[in-house]
Design a binder for these strands. Structure first.
Length: 553
RNA sequence: UGGGCCGUCGCCAAGCGGUUAAGGCACCGGGUUUUGAUCCCGGCAUUCGGAGGUUCGAAUCCUCCCGGCCCAGCCA
């Protein structure tokens, strides 16, 4: 029943792995890891990394760990840890090991002592500002710190006392002794440890020093026997340091770091800083706002895990800085939802239609297929009645060319029901349309009208049997393909990114919808019952994506 | 000449010295259709950032040039 996900096309990482396997490197083992810092919510960019790491493990019969890179306790918390686990699970992946960088704090410390003994690390007592000044610039080499040649004994003593909590934050750091003149600034005696007298969610107050990313990541990878450590392009310059640490420490495993390009998606923002700004300055209603590119936001929007996985496969993995068009993501979600969603009818902006040639109180029960191509999806009943609702967009007194809907004096097919003809338009004193008075052709139920063609088909909901609902229509959050390039996010926001329709009418079957259940509202798009706000008393639906529309409006 | 990386169709992306330069998205036709949806069928790079060179043969190798991205946290 489930359509198999598209076959994996080759990419440079798979090629590297194929070569490694052919050479029997690592005895043919493949171990990857997804290593988020628990300081925020995961977004579609992380999904690319998750699909890559877990996908490769699955494809090559390997393993993939989920590892929390929790080396900076001032920015991290449990809320994010839980959210990240939920998101990875929801996306459909199971981690082999659940790890934390903090699991290795003891080993990391002992390795650092080893580096000091080797003469490869020293305690620098310069201020942060002095360190920065001595580092040099992109074009000029750095200068050695006056503390660079401290004795091993002194370094050992100072480092032990840093650990013991004898010093205040910032008093000392532990640095690798590499090359202050390196063209690669990461090699100019990078910081290994800094003093941070703060509580850590997992290690409590055990530590007053915490290891830096560059030192921690490579060692953690080695501890877990990771074979291929996949990260994004900005870490390319860090690879020499990654390799230096593992080489000097002579760790039994030396994973290979491979870098790939971050995802850039048009009309949205993936920068953590800007995402935080959207939430904190109330441009959206939280991390799970359906307009957010977060996993939790996309979930609430109605996206499916399979569609997101398909998207990540389709965009590929390269080292090119490339912008993906939103149409790619939309196509993925439409394909999945078209395949799996039951059809329903819903009217978002109702106009009353009275079928004048039907007796008062007339009703008739009609049977509708839940899917036009899939009989096994079953059928449901829909009540047709003398008074019905149709959508405002489906009637026009001044129709544009090629308009195929209802016009004064014109005919249109009510989906699954009769052909009606608009005989009269009733307006208020203010000129607003209050109702349409129509007649119907009783000989058109399940048949084409005789002697004429009626091309248009519109959806409708019975005024007597329909159910009231709220429908939130979402659109892209920004009106610029590359938002964030301007100074102010606000200027680029799409003012119509969320339009709430409070008085909608939906067919009765929809009152049984479960939260997160997805449907196609015929002719409108794909919708999901809101994960949090939907109830059978007051149904609430979010538009996931519109239907493809080739009719130029 | 700070260091590192990247340039194949509008957007992605295969390609790894000999292929008619895959495929997807988008777009443009045409057919089916009681969703202007879906589905089907067809079209869409004589050319791979540019210029030289090597070779019987180059998107693939070499040289130079042009354009773009990343790096100066005691963040990750």
């Amino acid at each position: 029943m489930n359509k198999p996900e598209s076959a994996a096309t080759s990419n440079f990482i798979r090629n590297i792995i194929d070569d490694d396997l052919a050479a029997n490197k690592n005895d043919g083992r493949i171990v990857t890891r997804f290593p988020p810092e628990p300081n925020g919510y995961l977004h579609i960019g992380h999904a690319k990394s998750i699909c890559l790491n877990f996908g490769i493990a699955a494809q090559y019969n390997g393993k993939c760990n989920l590892r929390f890179d929790d080396t900076n306790p001032v920015k991290e918390n449990e809320e994010f840890v839980k959210a990240i686990k939920d998101d990875v699970t929801w996306l459909g992946f199971e981690w082999d090991g659940l790890k934390h960088a903090s699991d290795y704090f003891n080993e990391l410390y002992n390795f650092a002592v080893e580096l000091i003994k080797q003469g490869n690390a020293y305690v620098d007592s310069s201020t942060a500002e002095e360190v920065r000044e001595m580092r040099g610039t992109l074009k000029e080499p750095g200068k050695p710190s006056p503390y660079r040649d401290r004795s091993v004994e002194e370094n050992l003593d100072l480092f032990a006392r840093m650990k013991a909590g004898e010093f205040d934050d910032g008093a000392h750091i532990l640095r690798a002794k590499i090359d202050m003149a390196s063209g690669n600034i990461n090699m100019r005696d990078p910081t290994l440890y800094r003093i941070r007298k703060v509580h850590h969610v997992r290690t409590g107050n055990d530590w007053s020093i915490y290891p830096m990313y560059d030192y921690t990541h490579c060692v953690s990878d080695a501890m877990e026997n990771i074979t291929h450590s996949l990260c994004t392009l900005e870490f390319e310059d860090h690879r020499p340091l990654y390799d230096w640490v593992l080489d000097e420490l002579k760790t039994p495993a030396h994973p290979q770091q491979i870098e790939f390009a971050r995802l850039m998606l048009e009309y949205t923002i993936l920068s953590k800083r800007k995402l935080i700004q959207l939430v904190e300055e109330d441009y959206v209603k939280g991390w799970d706002d359906p307009r957010m590119p977060t996993i939790t936001g996309m979930r609430r929007r109605g996206f499916t895990p399979a569609a997101i996985r398909d998207f990540c496969e389709r965009i590929g993995v390269t080292k090119n800085d490339s912008w993906i068009e939103m149409a790619v993501l939309e196509t993925c979600i439409r394909e999945d939802l078209n395949e799996h969603s039951h059809r329903r009818m819903a009217v978002l902006e109702p106009i009353k239609v009275v079928i004048t040639d039907l007796p008062d109180g007339y009703t008739e029960t009609l049977s509708f297929a839940n899917h036009p191509q899939k009989e096994d999806f079953g059928r449901r009943d829909i009540v047709f009645s003398k008074e019905i609702w149709i959508d405002k967009d489906d009637f026009s007194e001044n129709p544009p060319p090629k308009y195929q809907r209802l016009v004064p004096g014109g005919e249109v097919r009510l989906r699954g029901s009769y052909v009606i003809k608009c005989e009269e338009v009733i307006k208020s004193d203010a000129g607003d349309i209050i109702e349409l008075r129509c007649t119907h052709d009783a000989n058109t139920l399940g048949k084409k009208p005789e002697g004429r063609k009626v091309k248009g088909v519109i959806h409708w909901v019975s005024a007597s049997a329909g159910v009231q609902a709220q429908v939130r229509v979402y659109d892209r959050l920004f009106n610029q393909p590359n938002p964030g390039s301007a100074d102010s996010l606000e200027a680029e926001l799409n003012p119509e990114s969320m339009v709430v329709h409070k008085t909608c009418y939906v067919e009765a079957a929809l009152s049984e919808a479960q939260a997160e259940e997805r449907f196609q509202f015929e002719r409108l798009g794909y919708f999901v019952a809101d994960r949090y706000d939907h109830t059978s008393e007051m149904p609430v639906f979010n538009r996931t994506v519109s239907l493809r529309d080739t009719w130029a409006r």
